[in-house]
Structure formats: structure tokens, C-alpha cells
Design a protein around this nucleic acid. Sequence first.
RNA 1: GGCGGCAUCGCCAAACGGUAAGGCUAGGGUCUGCAAAACCCUCAUCCUCGGUUCGACUCCGAGUGCCGCCUCCA
Length: 487
Amino acid sequence: MSLQFYNTLSRRKEEFVPTIPGEVRVYACGPTVYDYFHVGNARAFVVFDTLRRVLERRGYKVTFVQNITDIDDKIINRANKEGRKASDVADEFTAAFRTDLAELGNRPADITPRATEHIPEIIAWVQKLIETQHAYVMEGDVYFAVRSFAAYGKVSGKNIEELEEGARVEVDPRKKDPLDFALWKAAKPGEPSWESPWGPGRPGWHIECSVMSMKYLGESFDIHGGGEDLIFPHHENENAQSEAVTGKPLAKYWLHNGHLKIDGEKMSKSLGNFRVVRDILSVMPRQVLRLFLLSAHYRSPLDFNPENIEAVQKGYEEIWRTLGRLREVLAFPVAADESFDKDVAAFAVGCGQSLARFDQHLDDDLNTAGAVGEIYSFANHIKKMLAQRTFRFSAASQAALTQARLQLMAMNDVFGIGEDMPIKNAEVQALQDQRREARQQKDWAESDRLRKVLEAEGFWVEDMASGAVLVIPAALGIKKDVCERKL
RNA sequence: GGCGGCAUCGCCAAACGGUAAGGCUAGGGUCUGCAAAACCCUCAUCCUCGGUUCGACUCCGAGUGCCGCCUCCA
């Protein structure tokens, strides 16, 4: 099956065909930096980070751009409230964004352009819109004239009449049409501003994304992504102000992720029911958070609650445990006993089938829920093999298990949940050896004592049916109160 | 009021139109010096009603319910 994505433009799944064969240009909406980002924001970031990894896994050369909107009403409001400069607020939360994103396990985008570093380009684009009669100046403000762009509404599937009927906001009577939106805002006293042909001011909300995406990816690129709440007005307007000038669609595929919910409601800044990622990561490993965010299809709603998190936590521990067992077993000396090799051959076939299913899920509109399910199944496949009473570590098992381990790690990498397992130091290794000795001597008292010592040191001790003794570093746990209101 | 999305086991969540993955939980059992772990078994006919089809969870229509967007929002 070929790669498919659900395109907001057509409202259906489409085969993915990049404009330039072998290359994919992706623009994902980043944050407005006026606060730490929350788990709902993180969902979008993780989804599009995963999209990028999947595209690369598919062999594409990916250029991934994620903007930072660092000039905006919300930033100015916060700065005013705290009596500081807007740029200080923006700088602080830009730095926090980068830190938290790295902590989350996202790879940095290839380019993270900031709005304030593209003012000349923004002004130039606004001028083009004025020249082409798509925008008009009004007392230092510049507005985009939605009626001047016939395709207005194509991204969100709305039309101007319907939008006007449903308008819930008081309109500025100076505008030609209630839906006209600001490209450039005249500065009020004390606000940060830049010189422009229309007087001092600053960019409107949508223009920076149009200008920066086209600057780095070209006038028409492959994928534009973001949360579904950005479809209207943000992406609609982005497209309008771009396509009005270029005559080309800004992006070929528009992908939008569903909302994260909490207590059945959308998690959002305005509702005040959000948890910032910075805090969440202090109580659970990033792997658990990522696995949770990817446990539903990206377009489905997903509820952030303790039960769901706990189930994911257990699932992650199983993946970890499997990797731990593999590491232990692969350290065994290879034996000449090949009596188990028939089972090993069947096992290897199963591994290949599992990988095929994994990729099929990802190809099908980034079905991470299915792919995550396949990881669990695959881990199970491995554990089942290792648990056989008749298990023998021959050259064949070594080869198959080495391959399986690489495969499992590669699968984890797609979701950014890979992590190096701590090395067991000499002391732990010695305890493990002593315990094996004790068990061979049937010195159960000593054996039990050593297990307790190892467990206290943070290791899982497992005696396998085949007689092997495994000592695995315990996975990091989460704190139960992770979803409590107080956090 | 307009537009859009979703509706699968107690919970989460998949499934080219051919007769329901997986995880969590629960119950039963096996293995084990103990413990942990593991292994085996059991547990849904897919919101309702129509239609298309040899055949539909999977397509179409209507209804019901939930969510979102129409204002800043990932």
C-alpha cells in the first residue's frame, strides 16, 4: 500500500505524492511564545514529529519547518501585566519551548523561523497584497479583503455567507467585510513596533506563517500541519493571503490533529484546564507521554486521564522489559545445542510479518494506534520465544534475537521512545553471578536475599523457565497523582 | 443558526467489502524452591433504521448521541 494521508482540503484520504520526487517539504505550526506549552500543544508537536520520522523511514528527504510566533497580542498582554518588555517574554518562552520540546523527545526542526526576524519579508508581502488589490489600508492598519479572493473558504470548507451568519464577534465597522482580517496592525502607544509604509506597527497573526513557510519551502509545498482548531481562521487566512498572490495553493496536503481532552473537554488555554508539559515530564517519563499521545489516531480525540495513562505506562514497561530480556539473553555464550532452531526459524518469520504490519499502519494515514498495538504484539512475540522451557541460545537464536532487538528499537525510534538502558555496573553484575551460584547450590535463603538486594538497587530479577537468571534495570515509574487538578 | 468530525468488548483502540488486531482490567488454569515474570484459556457482531452488494463494522441515506469550529487556541 502506498502512503496515504487524510487531506483537510478534500476531506478524504489521498495517496501521498510529493511535488518533487523523493523530497517532502513540511511546515508545522509552532507555538506563540507567551507561556509554557501544554499537553494539548504537545500532541500536535509529537504527531508532526512522528510524521516527519515516518516520511524519513519511507526514504524521503524531509525539510521540516516549525515556526515560532514571537510577536502577538497575548505576548504583549503578558508583558504589560508583568511590567516587562514583550521581547523578554518572547525570549523566555522561546527558550522554554526549545528546552521542553527536547525533553519531550522531539527532534529539532530543520528550521525554526521567528516572526520578528522576518519583518521585512512580511512587509514586502503585505505590499504585494495591496498592489494586487487583495488588501487595503485603513488608518495604519492593513486588512486582507476576503471578497477579493474567490477561493476563500477552501481550506475550512466554509463559505463567506455562512461565516457571516454565524459571526459571534463584534465587527470593526471600518472593514469592508466583517471577515476581513489584519495583515498589519498599527502600533498603539507603548506597543512594540516596526517601521512600515503604513506607519509603525506589527504583523497580524496569520501573515508570518505564510511568509516564513514560503520563504523556506517555496510558494507551494507538500504538507502543512497543525491542530484542528487552526483550520479556521488561521490556515484559511494563511492560504488566502498566499494563494491570492501566487495563484498556487500554499500546500498540497493539509493535515490536522484532533484535540486532547481532559475530563471530556478540550484542553485549552482559554478554558484554563491545561497541564504544561514541563510539569508532566517531572512525574512521568517522556516515553509514556509520547506513547499516550500516539495511542489514538491523530485525528481522533484523546482523553488525558489517569486510567489511560496508567494503561500506557504498563504497556511501556512491557516494551522495556522485553528489551531488557533481550540484552540479558544476547550476552549469553552461544551453545552448540541446536535443538531449538526450528522454533527460531518460525520466530524470525513472525518478526518480518510484524514489521510489515507496523509499516502498513503507518502508511495508512499515520495510524499510530495500530502501529503501537503492533509493537505490543511484537514484544509479546519475543517474550513468548524467550519464555520457552526448551529455549536454547544457539548461533541461530543469537542471529534471530539480534535482528529482533534491532527491529524493536527501530520501531521505538519511529515514536521517539527509544532509550539507552542503563549499564549494569560491576557490583550488580557480581550480585547477579552470586545469585546464580546460590541457585545452583539450591541455597534459597541466600538466593532470596540477593534478589532483595538487587530489587532495592532498582532491578527486576527474573528466573526463566529455561533456567536463566535475568537482571533488568527497572523502567522509570510514574506518579499516580499525575492527572490531579493541583498539578 | 451554519459547517465539520466521531460513534467497535468494563476502559483505551485497530481492522484493502468477505464474516471483529492489540493493550489495560477481570475470571479460570499451568509453570515455578519462593517471588517476579511467563504461558494457556474465557469475555463484543461492531449506536438505530433503511439502501447498494453474492457478501458491510467497512460504501450510500436518514435518525440519535457526543465532540469541535464559526473569537485567541495545537
